[in-house]
C-alpha cells in the first residue's frame, strides 16, 4: 500500500470510525455516570448556589490558569501548574484557532471561524510540546504524582503527545515527505480518538460536573469557592 492510499484510508474510513467511537464512547461515559441517580439535597442553602457556580467557573477558567502562582498550592506543584497550563493553552489554540483544524471543524459542523496567524499558533504548539515533556519528567520525579502514575497515565501521555509531535513536524515538513507526516499525524489522531473513551481524558467533560458541584456546594454554604 502506498503512503497515498494509507493516507486516504486514515483520513477517510478510519477517521470516520474513530470519530464515531469517540462520540459513542464519550456519551457512554457521561451517561454511565449521569444515570446513576442524583440525591436531592435537603439542607436549606445559606448562600447563593448560582453565585457560587459562576464564581467557581470564573476563577477556574478565567483567573487561576493565568496567575497560578498566587495560590499557596503552587509551591511544590509549579511544573504541574505551569506546564499543565501551557499544554492546555496550546491545545485549545491549536485545535480551535489553528487554520488547519478549523477546516476540520468546518467539514463536520458546516461552518468555520476566523483563526490566528500560523506563527502564533506554531509558537504555542511548540510550547505545548515542551510542556508535555516537562509533565512527563514531573510524573517520575514529583513524589505525589509518581504514586499516581500507572499504565493508564502513561498511555494517556503517549497518545496525546504523538499527535502533537507529528502535527508540528507536519507543519514544518520535518525529516519526511509531507504525505508520510500527514499519515502519521492522522494515524495518531485516529488512535487518540479511539483511546479517549477508555481513558481519563473525558475529564474535560466531567469537569463541568465537578466544577458545578464545587461552586454549588461552596455557594450554598455561603463560602467563596
Amino acid at each position: 500500500m502506498s503512503w497515498h492510499e494509507f493516507l486516504r484510508f486514515l483520513r477517510g474510513p478510519l477517521f470516520e470510525v474513530a470519530l464515531l467511537v469517540f462520540a459513542a464512547g464519550l456519551a457512554y461515559r457521561i451517561f454511565r455516570v449521569v444515570a446513576l441517580g442524583w440525591r436531592r439535597e435537603r439542607a436549606p442553602a445559606m448562600g447563593s448556589r448560582a453565585g457560587g457556580v459562576v464564581t467557581s467557573y470564573a476563577k477556574g477558567i478565567g483567573i487561576w490558569p493565568f496567575i497560578p502562582w498566587v495560590k499557596d498550592a503552587f509551591r511544590g506543584n509549579a511544573v504541574t501548574f505551569l506546564a499543565g497550563g501551557l499544554f492546555h493553552l496550546g491545545l485549545f489554540v491549536v485545535i480551535l484557532l489553528g487554520t488547519a483544524h478549523m477546516l476540520v471543524w468546518k467539514s463536520l459542523l458546516g461552518f468555520g471561524w476566523p483563526t490566528l496567524p500560523l506563527p502564533i499558533v506554531d509558537f504555542l504548539a511548540a510550547g505545548a510540546i515542551v510542556a508535555m515533556i516537562a509533565l512527563l519528567i514531573n510524573r517520575f520525579t514529583q513524589p505525589v504524582v509518581r504514586k499516581l502514575t500507572g499504565p493508564a497515565e502513561m498511555a494517556n501521555w503517549i497518545f496525546v503527545f504523538l499527535p502533537m509531535l507529528t502535527g508540528y513536524m507536519m507543519t514544518h515538513h520535518m525529516f519526511f515527505r509531507y504525505e508520510v507526516l500527514f499519515s502519521l499525524h492522522m494515524l495518531t489522531v485516529d488512535v487518540l480518538l479511539i483511546w479517549i473513551p477508555f481513558s481519563l481524558i473525558p475529564h474535560f467533560a466531567f469537569y463541568f460536573f465537578s466544577r458545578t458541584i464545587h461552586g454549588s456546594q461552596f455557594g450554598r454554604r455561603a463560602v467563596t469557592p
Binding site: 477517510g12 462520540a23 459513542a24 457512554y28 483544524h101 467539514s107 463536520l108 458546516g110
Partner: peptide, 22 residues
Amino acid sequence: GQSAPIGPPGLTTIGLVAGAGA
C-alpha cells in the same frame, strides 16, 4: 481544506451514534 477528513460522518450520524452510546 486539505486537513479536513474525507467523507466524515454527518451530525445526524454522530448524534445517533452518541445516542446509542448514551
